[in-house]
Design a protein around this nucleic acid. Sequence first.
DNA 1: ATTCTGACGTGGG
DNA 2: CCCCACGCCAGAA
Length: 109
Amino acid sequence: MAVNENFFQKVYAVARRIPYGRVTSYGAIAKAIGAGKSARMVGYALNGASQMPEIPAHRVVNRKGVLTGKHHFQGTDLMQQLLENEGIVVKNNQVQDFEKVFWEPEATN
DNA sequence: ATTCTGACGTGGG
DNA sequence: CCCCACGCCAGAA
């Protein structure tokens, strides 16, 4: 099934499954959807999802745990505020204890 | 079709 | 860990 889905659809499907109080990386999602090295496109797709409240795009950061895309959200620090609201500690645009809050996405089951 | 860009990742120093 | 350069690939102009 998922084979016929568009790239964006796959990204949305995985992003929506990110648990509360957890974060993941673009590359992890890319692999989960079989995109592999197109991690950049994941962020690109999430850009459109950023305005979709059903898709927690704010829980997606880069491999370093830095909120690289916070600038794409409405407010200047909306992304960070959303993460902190979930109990995630963010310092200087970077997720603290990134390994502890990291969640590995699964392929569209 | 061609070119450029981009919420990234990896490798080398 | 940081910094630099390259790769990767889908979408937009």
